[in-house]
């Protein structure tokens, strides 16, 4: 699997706000490959665990918010996720992308917690319109002049009209820069065409706003 490329907005080092721990500040882990840091954690290195937590907490919280549309449940899920990771560190599988691993684990857990919270076995998500709140940025259009304001409004509305599932896929594709193969793996699809179709259908819905 390819590397889960980090967008500047969510890069873990930027998310690192304040870290009292020396080993984080002196940059020891920052120069290491994900796979190496992860292996250290799996071998029981406590400072690797703290580094991973500190590096990803804010971006996981942001991602979880996109997915679940609320904060409390997300912070609870992150808390329980790290407790379980820590407890089971010897049994975890290897990874080349800690971010991919953590995001996917959090997503899986949120689905599970939302199921319980919604108290129905069938509804697996929060209210659809609370998740992946998408828009066309305004600032971008002040600089560029390719899209006039009438078309911008239409596009913005077309994006907002996408299904929650489509918005989610759009998020991974354009925002987290995942490939179709990565989206397939991340969203637990059986084959890559499911990922493609989701993006194709989303783009298709934008067509009328584009012409």
């Amino acid at each position: 699997m390819g590397k889960f490329v980090l967008n500047d907005n969510t890069a873990p080092i930027n998310a690192e706000v304040a870290s009292p721990k020396q080993h984080v500040e002196n940059g020891y882990f920052e120069n290491l490959e994900d796979a190496v840091i992860w292996d250290k954690f799996r071998a029981g290195d406590k400072s690797a665990f703290i580094f991973i937590y500190k590096s990803y907490f804010q971006s996981l919280r942001q991602y979880g918010y996109h997915f679940a549309g609320g904060i409390q449940l997300v912070e609870d899920a992150i808390q329980d996720l790290f407790i379980d990771l820590n407890r089971n560190h010897q049994r975890l599988s290897a990874t080349n992308s800690i971010k991919f691993y953590l995001y996917k684990s959090l997503r899986r857990r949120l689905i599970y917690y939302l199921e319980r919270q919604n108290k129905t076995m069938r509804v697996a998500r929060a209210a659809d319109d609370l998740t992946f709140k998408i828009s066309l940025s305004v600032e971008q259009f002040i600089i560029n002049r390719q899209i006039e304001s009438e078309r911008r409004k239409k596009l913005d509305q077309a994006l907002k009209n996408l299904t929650a599932h489509q918005r989610e896929a759009i998020y991974y594709f354009y925002y987290e820069n995942m490939t179709y193969a990565e989206i397939k793996e991340f969203m637990d699809f059986k084959n890559i065409n499911s990922a493609r179709n989701l993006i194709y259908r989303a783009i298709d819905s934008l067509k009328s706003a584009l012409r």
Partner: peptide
């Protein structure tokens, strides 16, 4: 331009939450 303009609602970072969790 469309790709560059797609945005998702951001929430402010929360250092206290990070420490508490």
């Amino acid at each position: 331009e469309i790709i560059e303009s797609i945005e998702f609602e951001k929430i402010p970072q929360d250092v206290d939450a990070s420490d508490k969790v």
